[in-house]
Design a binder for these strands. Structure first.
Lengths: 219, 219, 219, 219
DNA sequence: AATGAATGAGGCTTCATTCAT
DNA sequence: TATGAATGAAGCCTCATTCAT
């Protein structure tokens, strides 16, 4: 028992080191020797826990994503209103990124780009999480809180894309600060929910002349 | 004259090959030998045109971004209405990505992640482009077409983030098809402009109880 | 214990191979692959022991010089008379060169020419050795065995320069044979100590008219 | 005629550039591109004048050595006394090195180490120069100005070795200054001619017990 | 279980050299 | 004659990975 726990601890330890190294240097520039140094574990030992360098990379977000997912699922049960649920998702996700910056960098900057990541258990967990978001959106449409004349996938993309864009800039440029970042959740949600246009502009949506006729009905 | 043109042609040729290689394999897994093979030029010759592997990478988007930027600037002059202008920007950008898939992949997947890219001429061109977007948003706020109670940076992030998210998925997952992708411009704009909520929900924005008091006025 | 010894042995082994390769081909023409082949060790392994090709080069003479230095210091304690001490120094040094031809070539032909070698631990050891020579000369002047109207640095240069010239030719031209070389120690010392001129010529040193007045007293 | 002169000028120009480059960086680290840049001539053009990089190197000292040799030969005719002649040789050689530092570095530091240099026309010129030195020494022995119980080769080695040692240090360490260096000719000659020992020590040459019996007679 | 030691594989890069103009 | 352009060849070095202890 203690032996197994010890092993598990060591593994976590290596994963944290890997997250830091990969976050700082990227996957290819971050080396196994780097991870060994950072974790204080020998190179050979890393291969006792992970079959591969890539396997190590893919293992970095696994546990974290699951934890985040569970957390979100739990909170969603306590919230009524689709917009509020959306808000909670973004909030918790941002909070998680802030508290686990290295993981965030690995997920947002490195894994996003790796085609093989898609076949991974971690990516499966991400897709599960996406389903949750989809469910919230679906629910919002069904209850009439959200428009139902929009592509749900686009809606999701808009929500997540906004956040990811902001997070990526935060990771790459160090802007804004952690606190400011969290403070942006509400404005972000507000923008998404209310839309850009003013009330006056409500009935003269200027691009509609390009849209297909059936879109007009949707207004 | 012809000699210089030939040289320029060769350079462009190498850049296209590099774009393809890096788009397919990533920066580190794509090798100079790969680019040499793809372009039919010797490895050594590549170094006649580019000082570095990284310099080669950074040169890939340079000309393309400038071309796109000029194109966008030109079209914007012909369009009235901020929303329509936003739409044109997204449309042209998507069109460009579709027509230059490799460049798109290099910009969206590879360079996004490279910290040194920020100090690059190409990145400068990108920042210039961002300024154009900002100007459109600013203009929309000033003319009253857009709400002016929102952070312009967030607005921009929402627009671009949505598109980038979609493009990234298109690049990584091959979904949707090229035609579908272009067809999403209008729905995307619509989502952004109109917001998510229904008319009924207009006056009961559910998350406002968290927002600061002055936000209420803004409604 | 045995493990450490084995490591040390391997290192020495590589150093000997390196000495041979560099002695035969020079530093630049002698390659790491050459050293690998000569030592029967893989290229990569060489980098386990030495950070650099240059570091490998600089490590070649390190241990040898220290050993020689200690040997000389030990013998000097047993000898009276500055000329005899000088003789011992030259003798031991020549003997060492003969017995370690590759090291000799590396020191005399290759390192002599490398400006960065000066900042090296090995070069420090050489400077220590030079101090020993200086001390002998100083002592000879103080005891009255040597003239004290000469620049000690020049005296040292004459002694070492003579030897180095002979050794360099021996290394480059293979002339004279090893035995002959050792046999030259006494004539060399004799030449240095007695000077070139005959007794008759003692008082008509022809170039003195250029020398400073006080030099005349010294005669 | 003018065409030929122009060609000759260009060649000299390249040689000077090569001397500078090789003197500063060594033969291998100094590249043809370096020489091209330094001389303002294209790389390809260098190959119009020299078959090889090594041929370029070997051509660097050729003309200079011949010029120096002729100069020395000329001056020697004007001087009586072997010691004075020796002095003139050292003086002119040092002067030449000082005035042609790059050539000096190439000869002393680079070519000394190159085995193929021996088969070169320039090396032939050097050997001719050595014969001149030998002739002076021989003459000194025959006229009774120099001892004739010494190996002439050793005598020459002592003279040249002393000088080379000093010059090498001057080149590598920048010590002494150019003026000081020339001022050392007389002390150097004095040391060589008079020997190290004092008059008192004349009849108790301490190492003689090792020397062969016939050496005793020489005293 | 943990690791020191060893290496195959391969990438980036540089240059001497050639050739067509 | 002069050179811009092109490249084959090769070296240094790094690292993921294995294996004996």
């Amino acid at each position: 028992m203690t032996a197994k726990e010890k092993t598990e601890l060591r593994k976590t330890h290596i994963l944290q080191a890997a997250a830091k190294v990969f976050a700082e240097k990227g996957f290819q520039d971050g080396t196994i020797p780097d991870v060994a140094k950072e974790s204080g574990v020998s190179e050979a030992s890393i291969y006792e826990y992970f079959t591969n360098k890539e396997n190590l990379l893919f293992s970095v977000p696994l546990e974290a994503i699951q934890r985040l997912s569970e957390q979100i699922d739990f909170h969603l049960k306590l919230i009524r209103g689709s917009a509020d649920k959306l808000r909670a998702i973004l909030y918790l996700q941002l909070l998680f990124y802030i508290e686990n910056r290295d993981f965030a960098a690995v997920i947002m900057l490195i894994l996003k780009q790796n085609r093989r990541f898609i076949d991974t258990e971690a990516h499966h967990a991400i897709r599960e999480h996406l389903k949750t978001v989809d469910r919230v959106i679906q629910e919002g449409m069904e209850t009439g809180e959200f428009r139902d004349d929009m592509d749900p996938y686009l809606l999701r993309s808009t929500c997540l894309g906004s956040m990811e864009h902001v997070v990526t800039n935060w990771l790459m440029l160090g802007h804004p600060t952690d606190e400011e970042l969290l403070g942006w959740v509400d404005p972000m949600i507000k923008t998404l929910v209310q839309g850009i246009r003013t009330e006056n502009a409500l009935h003269q949506c200027p691009f509609q002349h390009i849209a297909k006729p059936e879109d007009l009905d949707a207004l």
